[in-house]
Nucleic acid binder design. Structure first.
Lengths: 358, 358
DNA sequence: CTGAAAGCGCTTACAG
DNA sequence: CTGAAAGCGCTTACAG
């Protein structure tokens, strides 16, 4: 086969001109153009589809040849070159408190799914719910020139989001809302109400709440929905029976300890997430109380573990995967210059043995 | 303040020349050079530190001025321009079966930590232990021009790694090993032995294994270590008492179902991960067996939940965070052109009530 | 010690 | 219908 003295062959490291196994440098538009005797701009136009005006990028025969060779060579555009030129990265950064919390992991799976559908790349980073780390990782994301951000770690007590907003960087919140910033969340107030209604139906009047951290809207809203519904039923839950906590099992255990040490141990505990509920269950057991018999417990999020616990856990199912997907959809709208309305997704109560006394 | 008719000011979108709130485009080397009346290459040399040969990048006075202005302007290099020019992305891709498994989430936390220390960016993606998705996400990572890859989802039954290896793309395995490819794993055989020794000491002779999936070296090695130790003690575990399973609770439950349906229910079950152990515990309860009283159960990985379960779970602690860090260290060595030895990290048995009969 | 040029791989008006 | 040029923001020999 005759070989043309092309720029392609001139590459010093491609001895012999044939692609051999080993560190092959990726095909470029230029190399395709050279092989076909065309100009790189023609190849670019064809491979990018549109020409803007209705006109075609090339004759159908030329286009055909280009597409075939690109396919055979496994051409993949260099994203750095594209981004540099277009000033668009197609990259979005996702900040989560911690991926080891399955709720966040599932949300990120939804994000990843939807992003792939939209041709966007994503990366995720842990911020441990620490304001300094949130700041640092946000800056890191901006350094990477993300087109937009998704915050799953929003908190009311920092100015970070307002700063980002002032810089006109598109972003959405997911799982937790902050101020009026666009957010997709579960209707956590309703979720809290559903648990309250269930408890009230069963006749539990002496109840307590493991309320989670006050910086998280999820915790605040779930607690508020629960206590409001009790209020409506004419029952005011005493302040000492609403205990702030961390989101993990240890936090649930500590909170339960305070609750159960009180004079009148409650007959039912609502924990604003499943891990805290599991910690509370452990604590109850240490106090000689059998969950589902002596004390009712309900959690939130319906983690995969909830139905598998020795005493299956009543919990509120939240559409985590869909929240992740929805966050991307909202951000895509923002990136296209449109506005995005905040969304509230419906929760569903799943009743299991842990909350059924008698 | 007098204003120079500089290229900086010529930018059509910066009306008035002053930086105002809003979508400010990032500072570039060029804009720093213009403000200082220097050439962009000088600025680059200074901000990059070294000149290669021992010579300085600029006079200390010039260097000083450059560094100050860069700092004041919050200059951050455009990574796309840098990567395009240097043919290096400083990006590494991490493939995991699923982030919703806390073991993988913790490994990734370790990866993220170490990568940050080395000035590397990372991104992680879920592959669901599905060969087709592994292939697709690996290609996606290569399209993004990663400098290297970390696989936490290695499986013996696909050729993917050999293909990547042939392309001379640096990579390391973490958590699971495959063939002779460089890997950092826990000494899972030893972990299995530790459980066997514990069971033997307690006098459990009629035992079963929930063995996990055969494509994962973690599962295979833990099972092998356990059965080998029993063999050494003169006890051959019947084949029907070693049951393959998925890694989740449902899988553990199904496997336990098969084990407990047998004529002679075993007195102790070793599940190769904590989730499977939890599923097995649920199943045992359904069979009227109390965990820690009628039947002993041990898991693997010492998930945060293990000590919090109603009957705290005996488990083998594995250094997950350190595995993640170690994977990055190995990859960094590879990227520098050095070789990397596979590493085996030590496990530790944590005994709790679930395995203490009597 | 500093400048000038070339080039990484693309895209996008603009010609012809 | 296709080509040629400019330029995104860097880095890196090479001059002087």
């Amino acid at each position: 086969m005759g070989r043309l003295p092309s720029r392609f062959e001139a590459r010093p490291c491609e001895k012999g001109g044939d692609v051999v196994a080993g560190k092959a440098r990726p095909t470029t538009l230029q190399s395709i153009a050279d092989r076909l005797g065309l100009h790189v701009s023609t190849v670019s136009r064809v491979l990018n589809g549109s020409t803007g005006d209705g006109g075609r990028a090339a004759s159908s025969r030329t286009a055909q040849r280009i597409r075939e060779l690109a396919h055979d060579l496994g051409y993949r555009p260099n994203p750095y070159a594209t981004s540099l030129r277009t000033q668009r990265s197609n990259l979005i950064g996702v900040l989560v408190p911690r991926l080891s919390d399955p709720v966040l992991a599932f949300i990120y799976e939804g994000v990843e799914d939807a992003a792939t559908d939209h041709g966007l790349s994503t990366f995720v980073t842990n911020t441990q719910d620490d304001a300094r780390i949130q700041e640092a990782r946000t800056n890191m994301a901006l350094d990477r020139r993300v087109d937009g951000l998704i915050f799953a770690d929003g908190r009311e007590d920092t100015g970070l989001l307002d700063r980002i907003s002032a810089q006109e960087i598109p972003f959405v919140l997911v799982n937790r809302h902050v101020g009026d910033h666009p957010a997709i969340t579960c209707d956590n107030r309703l979720g809290g109400r559903l648990v309250a209604e269930h408890f009230l139906e069963r006749g539990y009047e002496n109840v307590a709440v493991i309320a989670g951290p006050s910086y998280a809207s999820t915790a605040v809203d779930r607690t508020a929905g629960f206590t409001a519904r009790y209020e409506e039923a004419g029952i005011t839950i005493p302040e000492s029976m609403v205990v702030e906590s961390a989101f993990d099992t240890a936090g649930g255990r500590r909170a339960a300890e305070r609750i159960l040490r009180g004079r009148t141990a409650p007959i039912a505990i609502f924990a604003v997430n499943d891990f805290a509920a599991i910690g509370a269950a452990g604590c109850a057991r240490d106090h000689g109380l059998m969950v589902g018999t002596d004390i009712a417990i309900a959690g939130f999020n319906d983690t995969p573990l909830a139905p598998e616990l020795p005493v299956p856990l009543t919990s509120v199912r939240t559409p985590v995967h869909e929240m992740g997907r929805g966050a991307v959809e909202m951000l895509v709208r923002l990136l296209a210059g449109n506005t995005a309305e905040s969304r509230l997704l419906p929760p569903a109560l799943v009743i299991r043995e842990s909350s059924l006394l008698d």
